[in-house]
Design a protein around this nucleic acid. Structure first.
Lengths: 124, 124
DNA sequence: TCAAAAGGCTTTACAGCACAAAGTATTTCT
DNA sequence: AGAAATACTTTGTGCTGTAAAGCCTTTTGA
């Protein structure tokens, strides 16, 4: 079998492949005009500090843009997907789809298997 | 909007949501009889130490079973999905599918957006 | 009018984790 | 007998997700 690397999934970008950031990016993908800090915080069930840190990471990676403004007198932060961010996220999603398809296929084709200790082997 | 937590994806189990382990689990799902250490190593493009560590984690979490045996005189390690592992992985995959669907829907429905600085805002 | 609370984030601290490099033990080759 | 190969495991290090604490301004309340 030359299946070497068949399941390596190298397209799963470390920065994007992270629960919280996946949520952030998906939220932003739905709203091309951007989302406010607090709205994002609620959508993703994140704490202030947590969200702040993830936005920093995404911003440094050029995946999102961050804008500062005011609502009345209170500071506000607006986050928006950069066009590079959109592209890279869509690419990431394609790989993710591959994972899901691979697994679905396997689950369908391979029976659940009997369990028990295979003969000639010892449980670890 | 009561969309609170809409994009929190809490079903994304930390142990499973990891590039390398995703590959391992998907490989194992395809082969209910199990896979040998070295085969798995190739399929997932992992180093010995790396694979060893991930198997440890998956084993401690009861997601896989590990058996020791011999091929001629050489030690061999066989890895197999436990039934709990199969269940939990399938559950994880359902959540993953939700992510992909959410994103696909958004990408289709939301236009790419114009870019440029929104008026009244300052780039960070 | 002046302290106290609320809003809107940032910074800090730390535990946990992935990964690479080095190590161990046995076996086969020369 | 020594060297190389096989099959992993253990150790060490640097990164990073997360909670807790901090900071500054604005609003509220007595």
């Amino acid at each position: 079998m030359d299946n070497k690397g068949r399941y390596a999934y190298e397209g799963l970008d470390r920065i994007l492949h992270e629960k919280a950031r996946l949520g952030i990016m998906t939220s932003l993908l739905a709203r091309s005009e951007g989302l406010l800090f607090n709205h994002l915080k609620e959508l993703c069930n994140l704490t202030d500090g947590n969200l702040s840190r993830h936005l920093q990471v995404l911003h440094q990676a050029q995946l999102i843009e961050i804008f500062k403004g005011f609502d009345k007198k209170r500071p506000q932060t607006l986050c928006r997907l950069s066009s590079e961010g959109r592209e890279r996220f869509l690419a990431y999603l394609e790989e993710l789809e591959r994972v899901v398809r691979d697994a679905a296929t396997s689950a369908r084709e391979a029976p659940a298997g009997p369990g028990g200790v295979p003969s000639g082997w010892m449980p670890a």
